[in-house]
């Protein structure tokens, strides 16, 4: 460990205003990319399923 304590780690010997925003944006971007991918999949499957149901209803009313 190159820091004496957790508060020293957070302080980064005065470089905290640079280190933390850089890391925050980088890891935040990864998190957003992953969450977006999951959300997109759920949305797509829901849309496809909804269309199938709608087609079925149309089919039944026409018959």
């Amino acid at each position: 460990m190159s820091f004496e304590s957790v508060s020293a780690l957070l302080h980064m010997h005065g470089y905290a205003p640079y280190v933390w925003p850089a890391w925050g944006v980088a890891l935040g971007a990864l998190a957003l990319l992953a969450l977006h991918a999951r959300y997109e999949k759920r949305q797509l499957l829901r849309d496809i399923e909804r269309r199938i149901r709608r087609e079925r209803v149309n089919h039944d009313t026409q018959a």
Partner: peptide, 9 residues
Amino acid sequence: GDSFRIIYV
């Protein structure tokens, strides 16, 4: 100093 830790991202 510790600013170099930005290199890791």
